[in-house]
Design a protein around this nucleic acid. Sequence first.
DNA 1: CCTTGACTTCGAGCGCGCTCCAACCCCTAC
DNA 2: GTAGGGGTTGGAGCGCGCTCGAAGTCAAGG
Lengths: 149, 149
Amino acid sequence: MSAATTLDNRPPEPDVARPGVVPPDVAEPHEGLSIALVARRTGVTAHTLRYYERIGLLAVPRDDAGRRLYGAAELARVVFITRLRMTAMPIREIQAYFRLVEEGPGNEDRRLALLEAHRDQVKARIADLESALGVIEFKIATYGGDCVP
Amino acid sequence: MSAATTLDNRPPEPDVARPGVVPPDVAEPHEGLSIALVARRTGVTAHTLRYYERIGLLAVPRDDAGRRLYGAAELARVVFITRLRMTAMPIREIQAYFRLVEEGPGNEDRRLALLEAHRDQVKARIADLESALGVIEFKIATYGGDCVP
DNA sequence: CCTTGACTTCGAGCGCGCTCCAACCCCTAC
DNA sequence: GTAGGGGTTGGAGCGCGCTCGAAGTCAAGG
C-alpha cells in the first residue's frame, strides 16, 4: 500500500473538473483530497489527522471555505507518519524530525541521525520481540501450564 | 544485602529462623526472595510487582511480618509476565490467561488457544514492524528529506 | 426557502500501564 | 531507646496517544 499508487495525480487541470475517467468511489477533486478521503486511504481517522496537524506534524492547505485539502506531499507525509507510528516512534520524536524538515535544507545529517537511531531501536525491538516470541512458543510447545524455562 | 551482613551475628533470640551459611549479595534467603530482590532480578520495579499482584496476575505468599516472599514459581511467573508484556499482550489478556491457570487443570486447551492467538498476533506485528522498517530504511538510503517511496 | 451533511475549532475526556505518595509497621543496629 | 531501612496498604496522579462532544460554518439539493 504505497502512497505512490494512490497518488497518480496529474492535475494540470485548469479549474473545474473535466469529466475524465474517474474511479468509482472517489475522484480527486480539483486538487487535493478532503480529510475524509485521506482518512479512508490511510486508515487514520479524521480526528487523528486533525490532531496531527494541531501538534505540528504537518500543515495542510485549505480551500476557500477553510476546509483541508491534502495534496500529494501532505498525503505522503501522513503515510510516512503512520510508518513511524507503526514502529512506535514517540510523537515527540516525530515532531522533532519534522521540525528539522520544516527548517529547510542544511540539516539533513541531523534528520538522518534521528532516523538511523530510530531504525536501530526498531531493529532492537524486533530482536526482543522475537526472543520473547521464542519463549512463548516454547511454552506452547511444552505446555504444562505452569512455569517457564 | 542486609541479610548477608547479619548472618554471623547470633542474637540470642526466641524466634524461629536459624540463619544458614549464605553467600553474599543474593543468596536465596530461607525460602523466597524479597520484593526488592525480585525487582532487581527481573527488572520490574517493586511498585509494578505490587501492582501486578493487586490486579490478580499472581499471588505471593508472605512471611510472618506480612512481607512478600517470592518462591521459584512466583519468580517464574513474573518472568513469564514480562515476556508477555514485552510482546505487548494487554494486561486484560494476561489476566484472562492466569485466571484460567488458577482455575486448575482441565482448561489447558483454552490457555493454549490464548497463547497461540497471541503468538500469531506477535508474528503479525513483527511482520508489520519489518515492513515499516523497510520503508524507513529506504527513506534513509535515498535520503531526500521529503516524500516517500 | 430549509435541510442535510461534511467540514471547522476548541477543549475536555479516556484507557492503558504504570508510578508515586502518605502513613504506617517491623526488624535490626547502635 | 532511637534511628534507619526495609516492607505494607490504599488511593491518587501521570504521560501518552488519541477520541469525542459541542457548537458553528458552508455548499449543494429538493
